[in-house]
Each structure stands twice: as structure tokens, then as C-alpha cells.
Design a protein around this nucleic acid. Structure first.
Length: 299
DNA sequence: AACCAGGTTATGC
DNA sequence: GCATAACATGGT
């Protein structure tokens, strides 16, 4: 028997739910959540089982509807924590906005993207797999591959005639035959990477909570020690999953394009060029990186 | 039809 | 250390 409960979270300064939605609801197929009329629905994993959350917002509050069997206080707490992390709500970004206004290339950002937060990927394993899938292929295709993987190996639940999926766990993928991955259009190289990463989680080499307690350079080294995780992926997941605010996705196609357009750099700016541009944003590199990505689809 | 895509590893100088 | 090739295939 499904029960329903709701939670209200006051919306912090410089968080605009409506302006966050385009970052979640891209024009790609997506099976991990549904976005419709300003409402985001997705299945999430709580310690006592899965739950559907439906997120809406008015001017002052974010409203989270929880659907689950036997909802406990703990479930409500964990759901709230999930949303706070997903939307990076526990952060005051006004200092970042002050910095953006200082420079001609970014001074319009606070207006253009008012209240946009880094949209996280709370599941570290999902973030890493997404990086591997997306490596060197176009995003349309990458989303197709991800959706097939999710629908085939992720847990699903039917609620009110809709099927919702959760990204597969490392053990869900650990023993999937290579042939099955080939059918899903993974390259042999990417199959190795996915299996390496799954194994790292299953054996305890990689664990989000443990990684979060390490220093930045230790996190980086641990991630880079796994075959399939390079500098781009390490920075990406540290930004999107570990809450590190100082990440730059060097070599990233989108970042390069944005810097070329806005800062008149080479089409593929090198590390020192990028560092010079990011230097004044120390402590907010991830946000600048994220806003630069957003600037690509906003012309 | 050619070129590119939310990169990473292996190899060679 | 830095440049280059191989990976692998759909999208534009």
C-alpha cells in the first residue's frame, strides 16, 4: 500500500527552480526522471527501499511529494537530503554572482541564469558510467545508450501507470556478459571501463562516502588510478557528485566552445589559458564551468 | 561525405 | 613530457 507525504523546503536566495529545469530536462530522451508542467518526478533509493519523489516549487517553497510504503521520519529526512544535494541548495552563491558581474564576458550571467544551481548526480556510480558512455560520442547517442542500459538493468517501479527507473548498481552490472554490452553498442574499451568501475565499487576500492572525506588531490589520485577514469571524468564527477566547487573540465568540448565564443580563445584553449580565465574565480571554478556550459544553449 | 562527438589509453619520440 | 593513433558508431 503506497502512502504519500510531503515536505516543504524554503527556497534559498539565488535559487530559481524554473531556471534549473532546462538543465534537467534537456531535449534528449531520459528515463531516470520525468519533467512535466514544472514538476519533476523520479524514483530514488532510500535506506528502507525506493520512493517516488515529485518536486514542484512556488516562490517561497520547494514542495516534495513522497510516495512509498510505510513512510518513516527517516525516509522524509533522506528524501530532503537528496533534493538538497541534487539542487546544491545548501550553498550561498551570491559571492559567485559578485565575481561574474566584474567581468564583461560574464556580467550578464547572473541575469541570464538567475538562480541556476549545479545540478548534481548524487549517485557516484551513475556519474562515472555516464562519463564513460558519453566519451567521444555525441550526446544524442549517449543518451540512447544510457536509457537502454537503465531500462534493461536498473530497478523499476510502476506507479500510477508510469514506469520509473533507478540507475543500475555496480553489482547489477558486474556480471553482465560482454556480448550484452556489445548489443547495447558499447565499444570493447568502454566495456572494460564499465567493468573496472563496477568492480572498484563492489570490492570497496571506490566508495562515495569515503572519497568525500579525502583531500582533493587524494580524491583525484584515487579516481585516476582506475582504468577508464581520466582527468576529464575525475573533474566531472568531483563537480557533479562529490560537491567540489573547484573543478575544471579541461579538454571538454563544451567548455572550449564557450571560452572560444565568450573569451575569444583558441578553439581548443590549453590548460594555462583556461587557468588564467578561471583564476579570479578561485573557489567557484565548478560554478563557472557549469554556467559556461549553460551559455552554450542560451543564444 | 566528411567531420565531429560532455575522452582515455597505449605508443613513440 | 607532449603529439598522435586507436577505439567505435551515430549525428549533422
Amino acid at each position: 500500500m503506497q502512502n504519500r507525504e510531503s515536505i516543504q523546503i524554503p527556497i534559498p536566495k539565488n535559487l530559481n527552480f524554473k531556471n534549473c529545469i532546462p538543465q534537467i530536462d534537456r531535449r534528449y530522451e531520459e528515463s531516470l526522471y520525468k519533467v512535466e508542467n514544472g514538476c519533476i518526478r523520479r524514483l530514488i533509493r532510500l535506506s528502507s527501499g525506493t520512493a517516488l519523489i515529485e518536486i514542484t516549487a512556488d516562490i517561497n517553497f520547494m514542495n516534495i511529494q513522497l510516495t512509498k510504503e510505510d513512510i518513516s521520519q527517516q525516509d522524509l529526512l533522506e528524501s530532503q537530503k537528496y533534493v538538497l544535494e541534487w539542487f546544491d541548495m545548501d550553498r550561498d552563491i551570491s559571492l559567485f554572482y559578485d565575481l561574474l558581474r566584474k567581468y564583461p564576458q560574464t556580467k550578464e550571467f547572473p541575469k541570464l541564469f538567475q538562480g541556476l544551481r549545479i545540478i548534481g548526480i548524487p549517485d557516484l556510480f551513475e556519474a562515472l558510467c555516464w562519463c564513460v558512455i558519453g566519451q567521444q560520442i555525441n550526446l544524442t547517442f549517449a543518451h540512447k545508450v544510457k536509457n537502454i542500459l537503465v531500462q534493461r538493468y536498473g530497478k523499476s517501479q510502476m506507479i500510477n501507470d508510469n514506469t520509473y527507473y533507478i540507475f543500475p548498481t555496480p553489482s547489477d552490472l558486474l556480471h553482465v556478459d560482454r556480448e550484452e554490452f556489445v548489443k547495447m553498442q558499447f565499444s570493447k574499451q568502454k566495456i572494460d571501463y564499465i567493468q573496472n568501475i563496477s568492480e572498484a565499487f563492489c570490492s570497496g576500492v571506490l566508495k562515495k562516502s569515503e572519497l568525500k572525506s579525502l583531500s582533493k588531490s587524494d580524491q583525484m589520485n584515487k579516481l585516476l588510478s582506475i582504468k577508464g577514469i581520466g582527468p576529464w571524468t575525475a573533474n566531472y564527477v568531483m563537480m557533479k557528485s562529490l560537491g567540489d566547487m573547484t573543478c575544471i573540465t579541461y579538454g571538454d568540448t563544451g567548455l572550449s566552445a564557450a571560452l572560444h565564443t565568450l573569451f575569444d580563445t583558441d578553439k581548443k584553449p590549453n590548460k594555462s589559458t583556461i587557468d588564467t580565465i578561471f583564476e579570479p574565480f578561485t573557489g567557484w571554478e565548478s560554478y563557472l564551468n557549469f554556467y559556461l556550459w549553460s551559455s552554450l544553449s542560451n543564444d
